[in-house]
């Protein structure tokens, strides 16, 4: 694998995506909503020197959880499947580049584009709040942005996995939309229902929740934003007591890393085994 070629593919992929209208539309929507949420939540006031900024950023977490996984999954889902469908992939591979260079180049290119969107969204919202005069802890804000970037990286990987298994882009998109719904609502809803019916203990709820990358992102963000982990109830307290204040972050980052690497490598394995006539 030649890094030069990977970077070349990456730039090509990024440049193509940036020309795409979805990028502008998506970035615009995300920025506008982030700005709106932050402005409504801060409304620039404090009482006797105290602000509710932690809760503000919490509403931003919700927005990120709805937007970022959707775009990451669908972008990933389209990536390989559509090129296979159009036949452009075999054309690309007829050039002196290997499959691995194409694969990782594509992943990095798309990832950077999504990161651009997230960065611009957080940036515009931050500028707006600063102008309106709603301070807050900048470090926490930047860490939330960083966590969003990690979330995008892992779900883009999942999208690539779906794409590598699919022959048609439409099928890949369908699966990705379902996965989005699953990660964001259905999975948690299932855990909640099970907890109520089977009266699950603290450990079981924690383990089930940590299986979901969306939930991992949320827990990490809340722990960053709130000095009191009790906000997540007995399960949150148990997690922090068991793993320690720093340990829990290592754990959450490791889960996020696994959710990035495992699907991506699985996708690569499938992709690299495709025969020429299957491309």
């Amino acid at each position: 694998m030649d890094i030069k070629n990977v970077l070349l593919i990456m730039r090509k992929e990024a440049a193509e995506s940036l020309k795409n209208r979805w990028f502008i539309l998506y970035t615009g929507c995300f920025s506008a909503l982030a700005l709106l949420v932050l402005l409504i939540a801060t409304s620039g006031t404090n009482i006797a020197g105290f602000t509710g900024y932690g809760r503000t950023a919490a509403s931003l977490i919700n927005l990120v959880l709805l937007f970022v996984p959707l775009i990451a999954l669908i972008t990933g889902g389209i990536s390989i499947a559509s090129e296979r469908e159009n036949g452009t992939l075999s054309y690309l591979l007829s050039h002196p580049v290997t499959k691995s260079e194409v694969f990782f180049g594509k992943y990095l290119g798309l990832l950077i584009v999504i990161w651009f969107s997230i960065s611009i969204g957080f940036g515009i919202a931050g500028v707006g709040v600063a102008l309106r005069g709603g301070g807050g802890d900048v470090t926490n804000y930047l860490i939330t942005a960083l966590l969003s970037a990690l979330l995008a990286a892992s779900l883009l990987g999942v999208g690539f996995m779906v794409s590598a298994f699919s022959t048609k882009a439409s099928k890949a998109i369908g699966i990705c939309v379902f996965l989005w719904l699953f990660f964001i609502v259905l999975g948690d809803l299932g855990i909640m229902g099970t907890t109520v019916v089977l009266d699950l203990g603290i450990r079981q709820v924690l383990i089930l929740a940590l299986l979901n990358p969306g939930e991992v992102f949320k827990i990490a963000s809340v722990l960053v934003l709130s000095p009191r982990f009790e906000i997540l109830g007995p399960v949150g307290v148990y997690a922090v007591r068991t793993f320690g204040r720093e340990g829990i972050f290592y754990l959450l980052f490791s889960i996020m890393a696994l959710w990035t690497l495992v699907p991506l490598l699985l996708a690569y394995t499938v992709f690299s085994r495709l025969r020429k006539e299957e491309l």
Partner: peptide, 11 residues
């Protein structure tokens, strides 16, 4: 109370 872990989740 165990379900408090889902505070701030879209669910």
């Amino acid at each position: 109370p165990n379900l408090r872990i889902f505070t701030f989740s879209p669910v």
